[in-house]
Nucleic acid binder design. Structure first.
Length: 512
RNA sequence: GAAUUCGUAGCUCAGCUGGUAGAGCAAUACACUUUUAAUGUAUGGGUCAUGGGUUCGAAUCCCAUCGAAUUCACCA
């Protein structure tokens, strides 16, 4: 990093020296006891009752309006902002006015942490304000914050550059309150789901992130190496096969909020690490899981918004049960007018061409169906919609359909034109599962970099017997994007992956 | 990985077809005891992402590199 300091950074370092000269500690150690918050003051202050007459609050100084011997300022704590009023002769009752004239007026900066003691009152203009009796510097900021101003709900000079916002999320969180709100909602979403499952008796578990063999999804992994064991390890792309081992072990229901890692392209819908919640429940099938998922998402939306209908981008989306349910063939017929359910591979290829779907010769039956669906149906599914009965070729871990040849017991929910979950009646026939893995091996040899590996230990577990099981994987980031109305995954992940600025900074350093 | 757009003061942005950088906020100084995008006056602050090229002259044109956004491809 360049050692060049801006004018403002130099000034703030000078102020540190001046504070020291005045005997003011810039980074004091003792606890500053707090007994209220900006939120409590805003909600509970009552000028009639004269409550909140002895408060102590800490936060970041966000603006200062100095008018001679009196000043107003705004401080921000974790729950919001509150205005305060300082009068020179009250904080400096004696002859020495340096606390006000020097420390408060000159040596404090926007961004500094301060502690305030005083009482709450309303100004002539009616704003709830803290009348300051004591003010104390708690931590000096050496870098200037972006200054965002607001009047009548209009925001001026918002801090908007996405690169800076993501790289310096701490600054984004300080100056953009709606960003904080989005992440609080993400946290509530997760806790609502966790409670929902825990209340039903399912056990939250943890399974390996470092896996000797990756599996449970079609994706390219990150590879690493363990020095002591001298063996390759992979960062998990899914935890499915481990959770099923636990069902074999006798748990009725297990779930995990898992960070998964996929070494693939990045976009506003893809981050290399992302969060997936997987749940497996014994003695159930995928139709049972449809009801559970529908109920859970409806509960989450109500918990976060107090209603089932929300605005997402241009659309109004209503999560009230029941949601539409289509088989994949029904959905394709509905949206293209073409019934492809009885077609063989050649017929599908012809139908795809007629529907102007981009295909190539390597695509098998399942892939062709998926391409038609992805091109003509998925983009149109805005309201949450179940799609069931997927082709067997695309689903090596799902049980064959109880009545439809060539299909599996599987569903996805599409919402806002994106998949938000994927669920099966889990394949528990160990012989069938071995054959499916073997088909994947063939695909892998043909060069499919996302084909699954054959996991002998998983097959051994199935051979001990896995009960009929329903399983689901829910993309937490995608679900959060929809429920918080955010257009990109980077807006719902605190620290999204970015190209390193290190190379850039180093080359600058080398020159100087 | 490909295409397009973009990178100017701490922040948000201007800078026309090349003539040597500007505004608002922030900062500094002074004034002001209930203001609120506080106000008034004055001042300082920029290797115009980086490196090269064309040119008498480049923030502006060309090439390369770094970084970002959007779209596409792969996927969740």
């Amino acid at each position: 990093m360049s050692t060049h300091l801006s004018e403002q950074e130099i000034q703030r370092r000078e102020k540190l020296k001046e504070l020291a000269r005045l005997g003011v500690e810039a980074y004091p150690a003792p606890t500053f006891e707090v007994n209220t918050t900006s939120k409590q003051i805003a909600e509970e202050f009552d000028a009639e009752k004269k409550n909140l007459q002895d408060i102590s609050i800490a936060g970041r100084l966000m603006s200062q309006r100095i008018m001679g011997k009196a000043s107003f300022g705004v401080m921000q704590d974790s729950l919001g902002k509150v205005q305060f009023y300082v009068s020179r002769d009250e904080i400096c009752p004696g002859e020495d006015k340096s606390l006000y004239n020097d420390v408060f007026k000159k040596l404090l900066d926007i961004g500094d942490y301060i502690g305030i003691k005083g009482y709450v009152f309303k100004t002539q203009t009616g704003e709830t304000t803290i009348h300051v009796r004591e003010i104390k510097l708690l931590s000096k900021a050496l870098k200037p914050l972006p200054i965002v101003k607001e009047k009548d709900g209009e925001i001026y000079d918002a801090f908007t550059d996405p690169e800076q916002r993501y790289r310096q999320r701490y600054v984004d969180l300080i100056v953009n309150p709606q960003v904080r709100e989005t992440f609080v909602m993400r946290s509530k979403l997760i806790s609502t789901m966790r409670n929902f499952m825990t209340e039903r008796g399912y056990l939250e578990v943890e399974t390996p992130v470092l896996q000797p063999m990756y599996g449970g999804a079609a994706a390219r992994p990150f590879k690493t190496h363990h020095n002591t064991l001298d063996m390759p390890l992979y960062l998990r792309i899914a935890n499915e096969l481990y959770l099923k081992r636990l069902i074999v072990g006798g748990f009725d229901g297990v779930f995990e909020f898992a960070k998964d890692f996929r070494n693939e392209g990045m976009s506003r819908f893809h981050n290399p690490e992302f969060t997936m919640m997987e749940l497996y429940v014994a003695f159930k099938d995928c139709y049972w899981m449809m009801d559970l998922f529908e109920e859970m998402v409806e509960a989450v939306v109500i918990a976060l918004h107090g209603k089932t209908e929300i605005t997402v981008g241009e659309n109004q989306i209503n999560f009230a049960r029941p949601w539409k349910r289509y088989t994949m063939f029904e959905a394709i017929k509905e949206y293209t007018g073409t019934d492809i359910s009885a077609l063989d591979e050649d017929g599908l290829r012809a139908a795809a061409k007629q529907l102007r779907v981009a295909i190539d010769d390597t695509m098998g039956k399942g892939k062709l169906v998926d391409e038609i669906f992805g091109t003509h149906v998925e983009p149109k599914l805005i309201q949450p919609t179940f799609i069931t009965d997927y082709p067997v070729e695309m689903s090596p871990l799902a049980k064959k359909h109880r009545s439809e040849a060539g299909l599996v017991e599987r569903f996805e929910v599409i919402c806002n034109a994106k998949e938000i979950c994927n669920a099966f009646s889990e394949l528990n026939d160990p012989i069938d599962q071995r054959e499916r893995f073997e088909e994947q091996l063939v695909l892998g040899k043909r060069g499919d970099t996302e084909a699954m590996q054959l996991d002998e230990d998983f097959l051994r577990a199935l051979e001990y017997g896995m009960p009929p099981t329903a399983g689901i994987g829910i993309g937490i980031d995608r679900l959060t994007m929809i429920i918080t109305n955010q257009p990109s995954i980077q807006e719902v992940i605190f620290f999204p992956q970015m190209r390193s600025e290190v190379a850039q900074l180093r080359s600058e350093e080398a020159k100087s």
